[in-house]
């Protein structure tokens, strides 16, 4: 069991300090208040919550962008030294992230080929020819082609850019991919394609996903395990079926009730309610 754990987070916390002004004291904001979970290799954990619940901060800690205030982070069974400057190159390569906004996550002045080749150029002694080969291979894997190698990000649609961002994250063969709302900026039809791509890649590379989202229908589709966050705390954590069939926490139930439903029965019920209200009036 333990050797199959890809990621373990133990009581991780993150505080932000709001610098005080001349007349107001410093304020400390607890963005993440002690979250723990374990995630098996090849599985997907979805972290659900509304804006400001700390889910993105958690994602940034797992990807070593931000340093946790306290708590442990174990990847592949090894404890990670998250202090800046202490991170080994090997660790860094194991975890990669895909950001929410495909328009901000690609350098507008960098050709796609260079976007994909950059991690290789920095971390390996690969020749330019080899880098090009690897980049083209990865482009094919994410559903693009070698003809896209020399183009700039602005020539792509949002969905294609997200594919490129995924390709970049995969260039160093990571084991854990943190997906921070990867489809919430995308159109419905494109969202389906990107979700399918993520599923394909997970099968092919045996990737472990931490999937941050606010969209319950997407989470229900993609997740093995679900964690609901509310004001920095994990209020609900369990397998997908447990959480969706029997939510324990009040907030989770509110969240489910608030999600718009697009099935025919609920539309019928709504129209019936409306007609009834009209009849009364």
């Amino acid at each position: 069991m333990t050797e199959n754990t890809m990621l373990e987070v133990r009581d991780i916390k993150r505080d932000y300090e709001l610098p005080g002004g001349l007349f107001k004291p410093k304020k400390i904001i607890h963005a993440v208040k002690g979250v723990s979970f374990k995630l098996e290799r090849g599985k997907t954990l979805a972290i659900v919550g509304e804006s400001g619940c700390g889910k993105s901060t958690l994602a940034r800690m797992i990807t070593f962008i931000d340093e946790p205030t306290s708590g442990d982070l174990l990847i592949d069974g090894k404890k990670v030294d998250t202090r800046p400057g202490h991170l080994t190159q090997e660790m860094r390569q194991k975890v990669q992230i895909v950001f929410q906004n495909p328009y901000g996550s690609l350098n507008p002045r960098q050709k796609i080929g260079d976007v994909l080749g950059e991690p290789l150029a920095i971390n390996t002694g690969m020749s330019a020819e080899e880098r090009r080969h690897r980049a083209n291979e990865m482009l094919k894997k994410v559903g693009l082609g070698p003809e896209h190698y020399n183009r700039y990000p602005h020539m792509f649609s949002g969905g294609q850019r997200q594919r490129i961002a995924i390709a970049r994250a995969l260039m160093m063969n990571p084991k854990l991919l943190v997906l921070d709302e990867p489809v919430s900026a995308l159109d419905l039809s494109v969202q389906a394609q990107v979700l399918n791509l993520l599923a394909d890649l997970q099968d092919e590379f045996g990737l472990t996903y931490v999937f941050i989202s606010h969209d319950l229908s997407v989470v229900r589709y993609i997740a093995d395990e679900v964690m609901v966050m509310y004001f920095g705390e994990a209020v609900e954590y369990g397998t997908r079926d447990e959480v969706f069939s029997d939510p324990k926490h009040e907030y989770t139930r509110t969240l489910f009730a608030a999600t718009p439903r697009a099935d025919i029965e609920s539309i019928r019920a709504r129209i019936a309610r409306k007609n009834a209200a009209k009849a009364v009036a």
């Binding site: 962008i65 992230i97 507008p108 960098q110 920095i122």
Partner: peptide
């Protein structure tokens, strides 16, 4: 603060590369 800079940092880019290759052209 843009994501692409963070992404380059995650790829292992040092401060000089970040300043002159990643940020400056934009």
């Amino acid at each position: 603060t843009r994501d692409y800079v963070t992404a380059a940092r995650l790829a292992g880019a040092g401060p000089l590369r970040l300043m002159f290759r990643t940020i400056l052209p934009n």
